[in-house]
Computed example of a mutant assay.
Amino acid sequence: MIVITDGSGEVIGASARRVQAGDVVLVPPGGLRGLVGGAPDGLSAISIHFEGEGARWDTPCLCATLAPGGAGDGPAEGTATPLDRLIEENEAHAREFAVSPLMQLIRSERALADDVKRRMLGALQIWSNAFQKVLCARVVFESHPAAIKIAERHLADEVGHNRRLARMHGPSRLPSWDRGIAAASSWFIERMGSASSEERTVLIHFVIERCADILLSAAQQIFPDSDYFATHAEVDAEHFKLGYDLLKSFPGLDVAPLQGALTEGWQMMNLICQRISDIAERGCDATADLPAAWAGPGELAGASARELAALAMAPAAE
């Protein structure tokens, strides 16, 4: 339930409508709603989550500000823009991930066992190290002025977070490498060189950050004293919004290719998280089930010199 406490604006999504102070918006289970503040002062609201069977604590209330020009520039009441529909598609993927094996493990008593937590941190470290390279590759290849600014800000926010994670388990972590995580991570790095600015934005801000928001927020329950998980619980939702605002700024946005990037990105993140779950539960010898239709890092053999240079420039993460 969203209670509008001050100002005015609109609810975005499948049932867009104007709202003002005193209005109450009910969000059905699994329904996505976002708020856009109206000119000139935006709005304030309280998002209330109810307890009980099927309660969800990882459903966002996306808030944004209107571009210059005020509320009249937004979509007509009762309509949804292509970007709104892309966000809703992203949330469908997010809801599927929220009940994935890794998320079920994190919410179970098994995750409290010391050996499970140790292996989970080790597997997560592999992806955390690779994510630093993904962000570096994005900065190298980005050419759109607004996207460059966002990419550099994002890298500045995230740089060194893998070292913070490493301090949680020390130098003796296991595993130190996994073929499934390494293969899917390489796919993201390569896509930073071959994708468009819009596709990079979807992969980084919609897929990776939305996945991280769900995963790392829930992981606070089993790592309550970790500043790594607490920090990400605070910033990942903001990083998602950065991508939303950036895509809104692109004129004539073509959503069709972004839907393909969205689906592929979630498939790769699900592969990474499945491996983290397998390793945490069964150890380093857990079998990696790679999709037969995807060749993994071998696809990099056809990368251009510029793409390979970006990978070489990405610093080795600790």
Rank of each mutant, 00 (worst) to 15 (best):
S15V: 01
M313D: 11
F97G: 05
P145C: 12
E53W: 07
H205N: 15
I12A: 00
S108W: 10
Q104E: 14
Y244G: 01
Q20W: 03
G298I: 01
E142C: 04
K241V: 13
A45I: 06
L203A: 14
L247D: 06
I87L: 15
A64M: 13
F229S: 05
L43V: 01
L62R: 09
A64H: 08
V25N: 02
A195S: 14
F188W: 11
S217Y: 09
A309N: 11
G72W: 13
G243N: 15
A147T: 03
V202L: 06
E142P: 01
R167E: 15
D245S: 10
F229R: 09
A310L: 04
M1W: 08
D278W: 00
R17K: 09
V202P: 06
A156V: 09
P29K: 08
A230M: 11
A288D: 01
A137H: 08
A182V: 02
Q104L: 12
A286N: 00
D254M: 07
A292Y: 12
A71E: 13
A230Q: 14
E152Y: 04
G30I: 04
G54E: 10
V235A: 03
A21F: 08
A111F: 08
W127F: 15
G298K: 10
D285S: 11
A45L: 07
G260N: 05
L262I: 02
D115W: 00
E299M: 10
W57S: 03
A317F: 03
E199W: 04
A314Y: 07
A137Q: 12
P29E: 09
A137T: 09
P297R: 13
R110F: 00
T287G: 00
E199C: 03
R95F: 13
A218M: 08
A212Q: 12
Q259P: 00
P175S: 09
A288M: 00
R56K: 10
D41G: 08
D285R: 09
L253P: 07
G69M: 04
N162D: 11
P251H: 07
R179Y: 03
H169W: 04
C63Q: 14
D23Q: 11
Q221D: 10
H93N: 14
L165G: 07
R167H: 13
E96A: 12
D73H: 06
V255E: 05
S176K: 05
A98Q: 07
I46D: 10
I208Q: 07
A166V: 00
T81N: 10
M192K: 02
E198I: 04
M120N: 11
Y244C: 02
G260V: 07
